[in-house]
């Protein structure tokens, strides 16, 4: 039973996470060697119940890791729309970027996660942002041949103008 708070969060062990936090609430913001918090681990592995518990206990969703990874980008990359929505309701920056020039929208497109793309666009994701390698969300969808994503992006652009 010596799993770290990060492993417990990732493995969805919500009761054990609650017990650890009751003994040491500072674990909420404990960053591992790469700067990842328990909230980031839970978001990356789609553990919505743990995400809810950590936020309820006061975890800061705006913390970014060493390469500027965030709970939102990890949830977007993993395709966890329910976690994306709860994080956005907490006021995280929908356009947070990391050192790869990645944004939640670009990771959602890369993962072909249609519902995540829709949820991010609905909360103001910037469709013009490009990755370091110069790909916008649309260029990425076209290059990857993700037709549904392309359609969602086109419809969004039409709504904008």
């Amino acid at each position: 039973d010596s799993l770290s708070i990060h492993q417990l969060a990732a493995q969805g062990e919500v009761l054990q996470v609650a017990v650890r936090l009751s003994k040491d609430v500072s674990l909420l913001s404990k960053q591992d060697e790469r700067g990842f918090t328990p909230l980031m681990w839970a978001s990356a592995f789609g553990e919505k119940t743990v995400v809810d518990l950590l936020l309820e206990k006061g975890a800061d969703p705006k913390i970014v890791a060493r390469d500027r990874e965030s709970a939102l980008t990890l949830a977007s990359s993993g395709g966890y729309v329910d976690i994306i929505e709860v994080l956005l309701r907490r006021g995280v920056d929908v356009n947070v970027y990391d050192w790869n020039g990645g944004t939640p929208l670009l990771y959602a497109v890369r993962g072909n996660h249609v519902k995540c793309v829709e949820a991010l666009l609905a909360k103001g994701a910037d469709i013009t942002t490009e990755s370091d390698s110069g790909y916008s969300a649309m260029a990425l969808a076209v290059a990857l041949g993700y037709k549904k994503i392309q359609k969602v992006l086109e419809d969004h652009i039409l709504r904008l103008y």
């Binding site: 010596s2 591992d32 681990w41 592995f45 980008t73 790869n100 110069g134 990425l140 290059a143």
Partner: peptide, 21 residues
């Protein structure tokens, strides 16, 4: 009990395998 450990989360390279723009 056997402890199974999850690997640390990581983000993919967004444009891996795509031509440079």
């Amino acid at each position: 009990s056997h402890l199974s450990l999850y690997t640390s989360p990581s983000l993919p390279n967004i444009t891996l395998g795509l031509p440079a723009t």
